[in-house]
Amino acid sequence: MTDALRPVAAKPRLYEQVLDSLRSYVAEGGLGAGDRLPPERDLAARLGVSRASVKQAIVVLEVQGLVEARHGGGTYLVRDTLDVEPVEQLVERRRRLPDVLDAREALETKLAELAAERRTDEDLVAIRSALARMATEIEDGAHGVEGDRLFHAAVTGAAHSGILAEFMRSIADQIAESRNESLRQPGRPPRSHAQHLAILEAIEARQPKKAAAAMRRHVRTVAKVRLLDWDPEPDNE
């Protein structure tokens, strides 16, 4: 029997200690994707902390796509480990994500509009290829991250705007963060693919306003992530 779930000493952000204990528990117990964690009440008793601290730790794991909390059915591992991103990094990403999403909406909406006006047949081939790549990744059980990246790059290329493309390159790392955050939301990859298809259809039909509206809807969906609803400093801990 592992002793990873032993009482922990109090300190600020007690849930971070709970996260450490859960990571050790999963590793020492040989648990993997699909396995269920003990109920929150049991975890709280074994760790000597409040259920609020356990619940906050579970929320952090959900935010990072490491567990799935099923309503009334317990909490299950999504991966074979609980390699949790440091909370401070999570907090920092949460702080900058809204600005990144604002920039994406402004830039990519205009790029989609220009793409519908200026695209070539070669541009359409590149966009379709990216969509096919994303579909294959999703079918294989992945999130479609590379296909998503290629799609947005192809739309940017189809706009034939050097300045806007440079702006996109300047925030490429932040865009990648927002992409990864969005695509690990439950059910998001197929929804994202469907939205991409709507953007392609408008670009192919040379309908700038429709392309811009479809891209705006897509980026606003990207903005709907659990991270932005998370409170890193809960009052009840």
Rank of each mutant, 00 (worst) to 15 (best):
L183N: 00
G34L: 06
H160E: 13
A194V: 10
A205T: 13
I199L: 09
V219F: 05
Q89A: 14
R191D: 04
V54W: 01
S21N: 06
V67S: 04
L200R: 00
D42S: 15
G34D: 09
E16V: 11
V26C: 03
T156P: 04
K11I: 03
S24Q: 06
M1I: 09
A106Y: 09
E204C: 06
V59K: 08
L200M: 11
E233H: 14
E40V: 14
G48Q: 08
V63I: 13
K11A: 15
L5N: 03
V59G: 02
A126I: 01
K210W: 02
S170E: 14
R216I: 07
D121N: 11
S192W: 00
D42M: 15
K110W: 06
D235F: 12
E166M: 14
A213V: 13
L197V: 12
A9L: 14
E85A: 13
D231K: 14
T2E: 05
D35F: 09
D80I: 04
S129D: 12
P234T: 11
G65E: 01
G32C: 08
V49I: 12
A153S: 14
P189W: 02
R217D: 15
A130N: 02
L19T: 09
A52P: 02
D123W: 01
E108M: 07
D123K: 03
P234F: 07
E137C: 12
L107V: 12
R95W: 09
R216W: 05
S182R: 01
